[in-house]
Amino acid sequence: MDEISIFDIAGPIMVGPSSSHTAGACKIGQFARALFHGTPRKVTFYLHGSFAEVYKGHATDRALLGGILKMRTSDPLIKDSFKVAAKKKIKYEFKKKFLGKRYHPNTVKIVLENSRRKMSVIGSSVGGGVIEILKIDNFNIHLRGRAGKYLSLVVQHDKNKTVVPELKAKVDALKGIRVHDVEQRTYKGKTLSILHMGGRRIKLPEVIELEKTTKHVDFIRSLSKLEKQ
């Protein structure tokens, strides 16, 4: 298991009232939006466990939606995320659902849709604003981190064995970044790969460059983008 950062304890800087139910929820929302790669038209949240019991009082609903709207955990606008969503014409719905015994009590399943595709993400908020992403569509993964910890690239590409080595070489060639390991899972004829990286943060222009120059890639998302407080 990777090590906890001092700033997982001393932070995040956030809008109240609960780090697991508000800040963590916002972060799961940010993550889902980053993975969806586009503006969703309709978002459905399935709240599990403690999220389902007490989401109203902790503003979990507003925070989740705020995350989907790319708000940061310290953004005072979270309070008004319903209004912002209405203005942006994004439909949202909250449902209570028991997702299974193996999940942490603070878990949500987010289903994002637009006219072209549909995607689901399951994430848990495990306390202190630290979150874990456990499932993307049918792809079991285990990503853990707070804003400031993700140094991962999520890549969706064709079932093609050359894509990942090519990307890996390209990332390794960037100064100050190394690839530690790669996780891969295939679903619906596509492969989703996660490259865990060490070293400095990857910059957005570099990510765009990678996406442009590599063939057979649908999208590359840098999860370090969520880093800022």
Binding site: P12, G16, S18
Partner: peptide
């Protein structure tokens, strides 16, 4: 706005 230390 506050700092969660360790949680809110």
């Amino acid at each position: 706005r506050i700092v969660a230390f360790p949680t809110a």
